[in-house]
Amino acid sequence: MSDLHTELKRSIIEQLNLEDMEVNEIENDEQLFGDGLGLDSIDALELIVLLEKDYGIKLTDPNQGKQIFNSINTMADYIEKNRTR
């Protein structure tokens, strides 16, 4: 697991107040929404804020979100390619 993957899991647990969850309980390819972690629409907005705050990425097309926030793997991949910090 890369440092970015672990960092993302930590940030998600902290930002989304998933207090009953540990880093090692989130699989890299697990769906973040729906049947996986069960995140909701407000969590999606928090993830958009997280991308901008921590990695300087501003999502201009909301439709991108569905693909980017599919899993930790897809988030990490998108961040690697687009981060400005």
Binding site: L16, N17, I42, D43, L45, E46, V49, E52, K53
Partner: peptide
């Protein structure tokens, strides 16, 4: 002041 929190806004 920085990034308004959607989850707090709710």
């Amino acid at each position: 002041e920085e990034f308004p929190s959607p989850s707090l806004f709710v």
